[in-house]
Amino acid sequence: MTPAGTLLCATDLRKAYGPTKALDGAEFSIHPGEVVAVMGPSGSGKSTLLHCLAGIVTPDSGTITYAGRELSAMNDSERSALRRGEFGFVFQFGQLVPELTCVENVALPLRLAGVRRKEAERTALHWMSELEVADLGSKRPGEVSGGQGQRVAVARALVTQPRVIFADEPTGALDSLNGELVMQLLTEAARSANAAVVLVTHETRVAAYSDREIVVRDGKSRDMERIV
């Protein structure tokens, strides 16, 4: 069933929270290096789709295949390991650990994967300079601006050189200028690393940074590319 060359692919996903159907037969696929925007009105199930794809939430039914492996067949710790090693995450907010310095925050995924502290922080600094926030290394998240913090978060998502980056409203808390900057840096870094980006957003200008767009309405997905 998996279309040739896809990295992450989901078919017929269903997920209900109590009586509300968050996903009702959603489909998804993404190629390496591709940026796919997931759009749709509030409550349409965008975030649930992202959480399912990332293995954070287990769908009630449907299949998710990542690089030939079936996600629903993995147990929790295997999926955790997958998220640690192959996936990166950027959220709207609440993601930087407030008591760690910025560089420690960026180094965190590497440290979780078992990399030694010095080496992890060296790599972290490299990615921070890619995102033009290298000078914030020793500051704590509370001491930097929202845009800077989000760029630190993007650096953290990239630091393990993941193959898929999941971004859930990454610009939701930013003004348009900072939002554009974050999107530009994120997509550029992802493209140069040949990482795929699943971008959940409700802003079309943010979605315009994608290569392709999927609209989720009432738990069903539509690939807008095939319409045209």
Partner: peptide
């Protein structure tokens, strides 16, 4: 609805091109 979707895709396509150029 199809009309709107097609239009939407077309708009977004142009936005992508403009975004590309902007970058």
């Amino acid at each position: 609805a199809e009309l709107l979707d097609v239009q939407r895709a077309e708009h977004l396509r142009l936005m992508r091109i403009l975004t590309q150029r902007k970058r």
